[in-house]
Design a protein around this nucleic acid. Structure first.
Lengths: 123, 123
DNA sequence: ATTATTGTATTAAGCGCTTAGTACAATAAT
DNA sequence: ATTATTGTACTAAGCGCTTAATACAATAAT
């Protein structure tokens, strides 16, 4: 999973989302040590300060914790991670439905568009 | 339909999206005159320069045109507007599916989440 | 004990976005 | 003919984000 950073939004915000995603999807397993700030920053081609800013936020949220100076680790709180994963899923879905509704699509139309795109993806 | 502007993304980009939406959903009917820049800017509580920037982009895309100095009008090209509406719908759907897939949800799970949220909304 | 690694903090600079203020040209309205 | 409206252009300033460069403290590794 590569780092995908666009310039239309603050980088630190995108980093937060992508690390969150790595935790929720198991790329960074629960309880595991993640690479040091400087290394993550280099991977993402970003300034260490910017990466640090993202990590600090995730620490606030309880998804990461620091063992100064052994490094930084993913939480072992399975419940928390599942909860975050579900929260993100619901948010994505709600925002999506809101946008489609604003465009004037009915619920059944929304479902049919989703279905049609999923079919395309399977080919 | 009120102007909804957050601070986590450039305002001009949000304005573009929202005016696009107003055109696609008929709030600004095809061929109709839209309010002058200064008025739109005041409505949205935004600097006229910023609103102008958004309008210029939409003009580039062909959704608006200017009759200096009679004002600014929505295109009369029905095909174009329908095309934009469909493009937006597909993009929203694709991005949504991508995000859900990254979170580890299968296609059938995605559908069931969408369905569940739609049910909630009907209550 | 010494060294390297780790997280953290600080300062200065540059860049894009936004605002405020002002001005001008074209033309619709009077 | 005069006035008001409209789109457009320009400059200066402020703010947040990002980078670069350094430095420090704590501790794991040697």
């Amino acid at each position: 999973m590569a780092w995908e950073l666009k310039s239309d939004r603050p980088i630190y915000a995108q980093l937060i989302e992508q690390i969150e995603l790595r935790i929720c999807s198991g790329v960074y397993p629960l309880g595991s040590k993640i690479p040091p700030v400087r290394e993550l920053a280099q991977e993402a081609a970003v300034n260490p300060n910017t990466m640090q800013r993202a990590l600090a936020k995730l620490e606030e949220d309880g998804l990461l914790y620091t063992n100064r100076t052994a490094g930084r680790f993913v939480t072992e709180d399975v419940k928390l991670v599942k909860q975050v994963r579900n929260k993100l899923a619901r948010e994505h879905a709600q925002i999506f439905i809101k946008k489609m509704t604003e465009l004037g699509f009915e619920h059944d139309e929304i479902l049919s568009i989703i279905n049609s795109i999923m079919k395309e993806m399977k080919e």
